[in-house]
Write a protein that binds this DNA or RNA. Sequence first.
DNA 1: TAGGTATTATTACTTACTATAAAATTGGGT
DNA 2: ACCCAATTTTATAGTAAGTAATAATACCTA
Lengths: 188, 188
Amino acid sequence: MIVLARIQKKVRQAALQEQLKSSPFFTDDALAEFLKVSVQTVRLDRLELGIPELRERTRLMAQGAQNKLKAIATSDVIGELIDLELGRSGISLMKITEDMVMEKTKVARAHHIFAQANSLALAVLDAQAAVTGVANVKFKIPVRFGEKLIAKAEVVKKRGNKYFVWVKTRNDQQEIFRSKFIIVSLEQ
Amino acid sequence: MIVLARIQKKVRQAALQEQLKSSPFFTDDALAEFLKVSVQTVRLDRLELGIPELRERTRLMAQGAQNKLKAIATSDVIGELIDLELGRSGISLMKITEDMVMEKTKVARAHHIFAQANSLALAVLDAQAAVTGVANVKFKIPVRFGEKLIAKAEVVKKRGNKYFVWVKTRNDQQEIFRSKFIIVSLEQ
DNA sequence: TAGGTATTATTACTTACTATAAAATTGGGT
DNA sequence: ACCCAATTTTATAGTAAGTAATAATACCTA
């Protein structure tokens, strides 16, 4: 049966992809044993599916994860800075990825939304040395995977070395978060 | 000069480690060319320094970074849960790592401290579906690399589906952070 | 010049592949 | 019943980036 054989092949290739997703360090040998076919078949399948060999996969993972970690670690602004008028206002965009949501509820963890707002508030001030002093925040509506959040920050007042910054965040429909920060400048 | 030779070797091995730190995907061949020695020397050096071969290094990086990302991603509690009395109180510990501090000031980003407190507040409630509604937080003292933060959460009130949780965080000397959360349970 | 450290060379073996060709199987269609 | 074409398997040669072991040099100086 041409038709049946083709189906079996498809099924096998799907199984291969599935298996590699969960354990990406499988060699072709191990995959062959797992799928009960020859090594060459596994290699043909990989070729057809455009899946690189173990070493290449490993290298890509190492690089990718490294870059990701570095990106998270070294960026003082969380999200993407779209607009910035120093000392006055700023806008940043952040997309809710799968690893920002809680396992149980699939609702975005509050601290990610807080992080976007807080880092934007600091960025707007451009004080060489400033730290967050106080924050009053309200999470109005739960946010879920895939949503794009736009945070707008505005410096509303300055008193001595204290800056009052308001940040409002919305998805494409409504305001989901609102916050007031008091940022303390450590300069002179 | 034995001494001089030994010094040169030390210097070369230091250069090797330095180079691998910045570009860990160098092959022995490339390293040999870079250090102007033979491949064998590079291998002896690696052996002495306990540095695994390129493939092994890559594998370790891929796994390590993957686990790190996964750990950050899938842990609904940030920090280490030390004590938990469900519905009443909880304690968590978090160490400030280098990638939690801002580049300029070397002060811990506020959202990490917030994250510890917020996730602890949620953990204490154990509501199957709960989200943060409001948070009032005060960062009293800047926190720096290496410090260990102990957060203590306490459920102080319940009104309908709203829980009032206070979290106080201290390093080994003093209270550095104080927060009040209103957590909303989504279960009817 | 002997002796020890450091370096280089040589050879055999390993893993996990790519690439190509050839043979075997399979399960229907006619 | 037989053949066909896709599919699968086997085989062979070549590659990169190593390990491991052993031997040969080079260096340097006491």
